[in-house]
Design a protein around this nucleic acid. Sequence first.
DNA 1: CGAGTGATTGACTGGTGTCAAACCCTGTGG
DNA 2: CCACAGGGTTTGACACCAGTCAATCACTCG
Lengths: 238, 238
Amino acid sequence: MPNLYDILVAKLASHSPVSAEDEAELRALPHRTRELGPDEDLVRQGEMPRVSVMLIEGEVARYHVLPTGKRQYLSLHLAGDWPDLQSLFLRRIDHSLCALNDGAAVALFQHDHLRALLARQPATAQALWRETLLDAAIFRAAITNNSARSAKARMAHLFCEIFYRAKRVGLVEGATAALPMHQSQLGDTLGMALVTVNRTLRELRRTGSVDFKDGRIFVLDWAVLAAIGDFDPDYLKA
Amino acid sequence: MPNLYDILVAKLASHSPVSAEDEAELRALPHRTRELGPDEDLVRQGEMPRVSVMLIEGEVARYHVLPTGKRQYLSLHLAGDWPDLQSLFLRRIDHSLCALNDGAAVALFQHDHLRALLARQPATAQALWRETLLDAAIFRAAITNNSARSAKARMAHLFCEIFYRAKRVGLVEGATAALPMHQSQLGDTLGMALVTVNRTLRELRRTGSVDFKDGRIFVLDWAVLAAIGDFDPDYLKA
DNA sequence: CGAGTGATTGACTGGTGTCAAACCCTGTGG
DNA sequence: CCACAGGGTTTGACACCAGTCAATCACTCG
């Protein structure tokens, strides 16, 4: 397993200045690690966590549960992401957080320790703030994606985003990135029924630009896929 | 026009501790004000603003524009909101910001001044960070709303959210709140076609719980409306 | 080899979108 | 004062995309 502090420093440095002192402080931050099994919940809607987590390995997702029991996935997260950083400043968490089908490993940082660090290192505070702002930009993209695009474009856009983000953090091998989900979970992410996911996927395969199987995205023609999904990665940049 | 510093202090105090010193510093923050005509853009996608704005009066909206020209509204904002606070830390803004049909008034604060203030007053920095986190919670709710609910529930949920937020900041008179939009704009918010908006509105009226006309929401039976929209205001609380 | 899970396909239904027309209200100008 | 124009709302007809129901297929695992 990669060193979590390397991941942490690299992630913050990818969008914010990190001085030697900032880095030293970050590396001195106490943590615990936790391994998650497939689909295991890490935090549940309504809880008031005293830790925030950074993802080390695998993928996790945030989701809402509707009264009918239906799930809506809100966002997907890769190594280096802080999927519940907002719980530092929002008492009650409004969504759940779970590992995807392959499981995941996370580092847990106590809010107390984080708050103390942020008080000492304003630059780090800004870096983490920026982290939450990029998070929000992804939410905005998801609103537009799920509200204004056709099923085909919607799915292509999601594939593009995950692939692009995976590439940025060195998680693309060849032209394939992990997205350890079943088709029904894809449906709960994109706001479409399982059957529609399957048919839309068939359409996308037909274009020869992408495939999705065994929890992995295979990009065969990036330009075509990005065009289908109307994908512009600007929102992922600081 | 209400005093903008009163609005500012009250808004931050509604979710964060604001000391006398914090308040004095906030009130010393230089600003410019600007009046916006109906539908006037304040910021455009791709720009790199050097100011952030707080809304004083009226309503504004953030939106994406798709290559087809179609608009997707991302969020609606009332007095006290900071609809582009993220531009403090994200250079390029990924969406546009416009006034709704009745126009609006905003206070502009230079990023330089804000950054200087945040460096001096960590508590204020946290308050504004929290402001952006609440913003993100609203985005999450919008993803679920537009992806997982029926047209009727979706519209009811939006009405509930706007009404609830308006009430919190003292903008509900009787049982009515301003939402200065046309039906087609409502469609661009909820991800449905104009005709569907009109028919869904008809259905909602039939329930006797709500009406929407002349850019105002009229709540006739809150309990029924909240039930239809599956509305739980927890995500609006810090 | 059967059980179980997920993927795929077909048949059918129904909710939404598109197209189009009528209606309503307001402001304007003859 | 009335006719007209224009924007927004409402309604109808119709098509089609996407959802539901259901069966089959493919693969893995005891």
